[in-house]
């Protein structure tokens, strides 16, 4: 077992732990904190995949902005932050949810393991992508989608403000 594998299993375990915490925690705020753990661990996975840039972006946007936003909304909508009885945070279709998730996991893992990736051209090792190439590609070949994405962000921003602001007399 190489040291890379050791690191992978460690980071993967952290990710799964965080994710389990998100979906199972009895306390909504704990759930949000577990989400931070999961997101940071995924950033670690990105580094293992030699996508350092994405890892940084992940930490900045998810670890910072998104989780803060979520915690704010929790506060505003008064999601219970005290531990509560079972079923308070979960709906009645929890058994079906577990069944569906399990079925999906089985199919997905089966597909991942049964496929002959070498035949599809997969290499043994990770091929790091240099920063410069990524930047060039993003602003040359992918310039149009990039601009569209910025427009989407702008519209989402305006939409969020319109939806969330207090109206007259409210």
């Amino acid at each position: 077992m190489s040291y890379e594998e050791v690191i992978f299993y460690f980071v993967a375990a952290l990710t799964v732990l965080g994710a389990l915490g998100v979906v199972l925690a009895r306390n909504a705020v704990h759930s949000a904190l577990f989400l931070i753990l999961a997101l940071l661990a995924v950033a670690g996975v990105f580094i293992l995949l030699s996508a350092e840039f994405l890892a940084i972006v992940q930490v900045l946007i998810y670890g910072g902005a998104v989780t803060i936003l979520i915690l704010f909304v929790m506060m505003l909508t008064r999601v219970r932050d005290t531990p509560s009885a079972a079923g308070e945070l979960d709906g009645p279709q929890r058994p079906f949810a577990a069944l569906a998730a399990g079925a999906f996991l089985a199919i997905s893992v089966l597909a991942a393991l049964a496929t002959d990736w070498e035949a599809l051209g997969a290499t043994e090792e990770i091929n790091p992508v240099p920063f410069e190439e990524l930047g060039e590609a993003l602003f040359r070949n992918w310039a149009a989608p990039f601009e569209v994405a910025s427009l989407v962000l702008l519209v989402a921003l305006i939409g969020a403000i319109v939806l969330a602001r207090h109206e007259e007399g409210e």
Partner: peptide
Amino acid sequence: LARRSAVL
């Protein structure tokens, strides 16, 4: 599928 709160 299991959670009730929209935030979760």
